[in-house]
Design a protein around this nucleic acid. Structure first.
Length: 804
DNA sequence: TAATAGTGTGTTTTT
DNA sequence: CACACTATTA
C-alpha cells in the first residue's frame, strides 16, 4: 500500500490521505489531479476504510471515467465491476433503470440526445400550431434545459411576462410529450433521478448509507442540479442553511442571492421537511410495494452479480459526519469554461461554505509545462476577479520563449503554422504531439486546407461522432421502434426513410390523428392505416414483422436483420455517397457485438441488452471517430483540448472578436470566461507554444479586419518572442486572393490618411480597425471594428479618429 | 410526393 | 464561404 503513496508530492499526499471529512482540492492544470483522485480511492479501499461499493465517483466525460477505472484496476487487485464510477448522466441512467417504476418510467425508456430533443420540440411546436418564428425550437430547447439544470420544473418556473409564460406552458407540454413517449432528455436524466431520491425517502436513505465516499472530478463544471444531487447523496441536502448574506467575499455577492432553492416540487414544504410526498411533476408510480422492495436492496432484482459480499456496507469508522458521505471534490475554477452550458463555478465556494471545508488543498506544482508557459498563464489569469487563487509552478526550467507571430491574413497564418509544423516534425516532434487549437470550428477549414496541400497528416476532433451519423441514427431509430413503439421521435425519423411514399400530407394527417386520440404516432398509424395496401399500413407491418422476426435474436443479428429488411442497405447501396455509410452500418453491428462482450462481464443492470445498448449509443456518442490517426497533427477547438496536453501547441486566431469572441462580450462575465478559455489553451503546452493572429480574416464570406487579441497584451512581454514574418509573406502574396476588398483600399484612401485596414483610436471606444467606408466629403462614414466594443459606423466629420 | 432551387444564418457543447 | 431549412416545381 505504501507504494501507492510513493512519489506523491506533499500536497498530493495530504489530499489522498485526508481523514474522512469533506474536501475541496484546487487542482491546477497539469498538477496530477486524476492521479490524486484515483489514488485516493485506492487508498480508501486498501486501508479498509470503505468497500468498493461504498464509493461513488463522478466525472463528466466517459473518457475520464474510463481512465479512472483503468488506473484503479492497475492499482488495486479488486474487481471494479459494479462500482459506481461513471458520468453524472451514466450514473443517473443506472439509477433510473434500476428504479424505473418508482421514477415513473417504462423499463425501456429511451434517451434523447440533443438532436433528438430538438426534433421532439419541433414536432411539438408543429402539433400545437405554435409560431416557430416567435418560439424558435432551438431557443426553446435551451430554455427548457436551463430550467431543468436549475432543478426547476414547468410548474415552478417563473413566468414574468406573456412570452415567458407561453414558453413555460410549452415546457410543460414538452415534458408531457416525453412522458407519453417514454423518453428522457439529458437534463431529465439528472432531474428525474434527483426527484426520485427526494421523493422516495427509503430509497434515498439506502443510497446515502451505501455511499461513504463521494468523489467528483472537474467540480467547477457542475451545474446547480448536479451539485444538489451530490448534496442529496452526501446526506447534506436537508440541513443546508441558506441564511442571509454570509461572509461576503468580493465578487460572489451576486450569486449568493440566487434565491429559488432546489427543493422537491411539493407544495408548502420547506427544505427541512421530511414527509414523503408525491406531487406535481411527471406522473409517479407510487406503489408502496415498489418502494419497500427497492429499499431493501435497490439492485436486488439483479440476478447477475453473484457476489453480494462486498455490497455489505462496511460499518463507517471514525465517521465524522453523521450519516452522510464524505464529499471529495476536485476542480479548478480557472478552468471553468462551460458556464454557457449552465456550469456554476460558484458551486466551489458554496461547497466550501456549506460543507464546512476546513482547509482547501491546493495542487500548484505543475508537471507538464516549462516555466515560461506557466508564467504566461499565471499572468493572464491574474486579470480575472473573484478567483479562489492559485499559482502554478514547476521544477522544470523556464524553457523556450513563447513564439508570437502576426500574419497578414488567415491564409497566411495557416501557411505559417503549417511551415512551422513541418519544421517541428523535422526536428523530431511527433505529429501526435502537435496540436492546432482555435476558438471556433469554422477556423479549422483554412488550416485543414493548408495541411492537406502540404501533405501533412492531420486529424480533426469534434467532427460528427459515430452515433451521430445519419445512417446510424436511422438504424437505431428502427431499433428503438422495435423496443418501444411509442417513441415518436424514432417513428418520424424513419417512417419515410428510405422513402416509401409517406410524405408531408399523410404525416400531417397522422399527427392530427395522434394528437386527437392522445396516442403515439405509431398507434395512430396502426389504427388509421389499418387498411391494407396503404403505405402507412405497410410501414406498420414492416415494424411488426421486424419485431416478431428478431424476437430472441442476439442484438447484432437484430441490427443486421433490420438494416436489411428496412431497406436501409438497399438505399445506401444505390446512393452514390453510400459506400462509407454502408461501412458504418456494418461497424454498428460490430459495435453491438463488442458492446455485448464488454457488458457481459461487467455485472451491470438486468436491463435488456437492447435498452442498454441504446443508452450506450446516446450517452457515449463515441470517441469512435474517423481517421483514428496514427502520427497525425491534432486539430481541435480549445474546448475540446481541455484535459489534454501536447509537446507543441499552436493557438491561432488570437484576434479581438474571435478570441475573445465578440458574442462573449454580451454575456455576464463573458470576457472572464474567454480568458479562462485562453488559460486552458496556454496550459496545454508542454515545451513549445505558438500564438498567432492575422490582420484580415475571411468570415461569413467577407474579409474582416482584425486587431490582435487583448489576451496577447496581457502576457508579459519578456516571455514572448515575436517572430513577425508577416511582411515577407504579404509581399509574396500579390493580389490573387484579393479581387474586391484590397482594390477598394487604395480607392478609398482619403485625405486624412484613413484607409481600410487602418488602425485608429477613438476617445470613447479605444482602439479599432477601419473595416469599410462609404460616402464622400462631409457624408463620409467609416465602419470601425472596436473589438469588444463592437462594430460602429462613424461619421468622419464628427468622430475624432486618430490613425495609429 | 420528391427532387430542386432559393433563402437565411452563422461560438464554444464533456452528456 | 458553407450549411440547414423553405418554397417551389415536376
Amino acid at each position: 500500500m505504501s507504494d501507492l503513496l510513493a512519489n506523491l508530492n506533499p500536497e498530493q499526499l495530504a489530499a489522498v490521505t485526508l481523514p474522512p471529512q469533506h474536501a475541496l482540492i484546487l487542482a491546477g492544470a497539469g498538477s496530477g489531479k486524476t492521479r490524486v483522485l484515483t489514488t485516493r480511492i485506492a487508498w480508501l479501499i486498501s486501508t479498509g476504510q470503505v468497500g468498493p461499493h461504498g464509493i461513488l465517483a463522478v466525472t463528466f466525460t466517459n473518457k475520464a471515467a474510463k481512465e479512472m477505472l483503468a488506473r484503479l484496476t492497475a492499482m488495486l487487485p479488486i474487481n471494479t465491476r459494479g462500482m459506481w464510477i461513471g458520468t453524472f448522466h451514466g450514473l443517473c441512467n443506472r439509477l433510473l433503470r434500476a428504479h424505473h417504476r418508482e421514477a415513473g418510467l417504462p423499463s425501456l425508456f429511451q434517451i434523447l440526445d440533443s438532436s433528438d430533443q430538438l426534433s421532439a420540440i419541433k414536432r411539438l411546436i408543429k402539433n400545437l400550431n405554435v409560431d416557430d418564428v416567435k418560439y424558435p425550437p432551438r431557443e426553446l430547447a435551451s430554455f427548457i434545459n436551463a430550467h431543468k439544470e436549475q432543478g426547476i420544473r414547468a410548474a415552478q418556473a417563473e413566468a414574468y411576462d406573456e412570452y415567458t409564460s407561453r414558453r413555460v406552458a410549452l415546457y410543460a407540454e414538452y415534458d408531457a410529450q416525453c412522458q407519453r413517449e417514454g423518453v428522457v432528455d439529458f437534463a431529465e436524466l439528472l432531474l428525474r433521478s434527483y426527484e426520485l431520491l427526494t421523493r422516495n425517502e427509503p430509497l434515498c436513505r439506502h443510497y446515502q448509507q451505501r455511499f461513504r465516499h463521494i468523489l467528483v472530478d472537474e467540480f467547477q463544471d457542475t451545474n446547480r442540479l448536479q451539485y444538489a444531487w451530490l448534496k442529496l447523496l452526501a446526506g447534506h441536502g436537508e440541513r443546508q442553511r441558506r441564511s442571509a448574506a454570509g461572509p461576503s467575499q468580493g465578487g460572489t455577492s451576486q450569486r449568493m442571492e440566487r434565491s429559488e432553492p432546489l427543493s422537491p416540487p411539493s407544495a408548502g414544504r420547506g427544505p427541512g421537511g421530511s414527509a414523503v410526498t408525491f406531487v406535481a411533476g411527471p406522473p409517479q408510480d407510487r406503489t408502496a410495494r415498489g418502494e419497500a422492495a427497492s429499499a431493501t436492496s435497490p439492485e436486488a432484482q439483479n440476478p447477475v452479480s453473484s457476489s453480494r459480499s462486498d455490497d455489505e456496507i462496511a460499518p463507517p469508522r471514525g465517521e465524522g459526519i453523521g450519516g452522510g458521505a464524505c464529499l471529495f471534490a476536485v476542480g479548478d475554477d480557472d478552468q471553468s469554461i462551460y458556464a454557457f452550458r449552465g456550469a456554476e463555478v460558484g458551486n466551489m465556494r458554496d461547497l466550501e461554505r456549506e460543507f464546512d471545508v476546513a482547509n482547501v488543498i491546493r495542487l500548484e506544482q505543475n508537471y507538464r509545462s516549462h516555466g515560461n508557459i506557466l508564467d504566461a498563464a499565471n499572468a493572464l489569469i491574474k486579470n480575472n476577479r473573484g478567483r479562489l487563487g492559485k499559482n502554478l509552478w514547476t521544477e522544470a526550467g523556464a524553457g523556450e520563449a513563447i513564439r508570437v507571430f502576426e500574419a497578414s491574413s488567415d491564409l497566411d497564418e495557416a501557411r505559417l503554422i503549417v511551415d512551422e509544423v513541418r519544421e517541428l516534425a523535422r526536428d523530431g516532434f511527433a505529429r501526435t504531439q502537435i496540436a492546432l487549437l482555435y476558438r471556433s470550428n469554422a477556423q479549422s477549414r483554412v488550416l485543414e486546407h493548408q495541411l492537406f496541400s502540404a501533405n501533412v497528416p492531420y486529424r480533426v476532433y469534434g467532427g460528427l461522432r459515430f452515433f451521430d451519423r445519419q445512417e446510424i441514427k436511422h438504424a437505431l431509430a428502427y431499433l428503438r421502434l422495435i423496443g418501444n413503439s411509442d417513441d415518436d421521435t424514432a417513428f418520424s425519423r424513419v417512417v419515410n426513410f428510405p422513402t416509401r411514399g409517406i410524405g408531408n400530407r399523410s404525416l400531417e394527417a397522422l399527427q392530427e390523428a395522434a394528437h386527437r386520440a392522445n396516442s403515439s404516432l405509431y398507434n395512430a398509424a396502426a389504427s388509421l392505416g389499418g387498411k391494407a395496401g396503404s403505405s402507412v399500413g405497410s410501414f406498420i407491418r414492416l415494424i411488426e414483422t421486424l419485431r416478431s422476426e428478431t424476437a430472441g435474436l442476439p442484438l447484432p443479428e437484430v441490427i443486421d436483420h433490420l438494416i436489411e429488411k428496412s431497406g436501409l442497405r438497399q438505399h445506401y447501396l444505390t446512393e452514390k455517397e453510400g459506400r462509407e455509410r454502408l461501412e458504418n452500418l456494418d461497424e454498428l453491428i460490430n459495435a453491438a457485438t463488442n458492446f455485448l462482450q464488454e457488458e457481459s462481464d461487467s455485472a451491470d443492470e438486468d436491463a435488456s441488452p437492447l435498452a442498454s445498448f441504446l443508452a450506450h449509443a446516446s450517452l457515449e456518442a463515441g470517441e469512435h471517430q474517423a481517421g483514428e490517426g496514427q502520427e497525425a497533427v491534432q486539430l481541435m477547438t480549445v474546448h475540446a483540448a481541455k484535459g489534454l496536453e501536447f509537446d507543441a501547441v499552436f493557438i491561432s486566431g488570437l484576434e479581438q472578436g474571435l478570441f475573445p469572441h465578440e458574442n462573449a462580450a454580451q454575456e455576464r462575465d463573458g470576457l472572464e470566461e474567454e480568458r479562462r478559455l485562453m488559460y486552458v489553451a496556454l496550459t496545454r503546452a508542454r515545451k513549445r507554444l505558438y500564438l498567432s493572429h492575422a490582420q484580415t480574416r475571411m468570415l461569413h464570406g467577407q474579409t474582416r479586419y482584425c486587431l490582435p487579441s487583448l489576451f496577447l497584451e496581457e502576457l508579459p512581454e519578456e516571455l514572448l518572442l515575436k517572430v513577425n514574418r508577416a511582411p515577407a509573406y504579404a509581399a509574396s502574396v500579390p493580389s490573387r486572393s484579393s479581387s474586391a476588398a484590397p482594390a477598394r483600399v487604395s480607392e478609398q484612401t482619403s485625405a486624412n490618411g484613413l484607409r481600410i485596414g487602418q488602425n485608429v483610436e477613438h476617445a470613447k471606444f479605444g482602439l479599432g480597425v477601419i473595416v469599410s467606408a462609404e460616402g464622400r466629403g462631409s457624408d463620409a462614414r467609416v465602419q470601425v471594428n472596436f473589438g469588444a466594443q463592437g462594430m460602429k459606423w462613424l461619421a468622419l466629420e464628427y468622430a475624432k479618429l486618430t490613425p495609429v
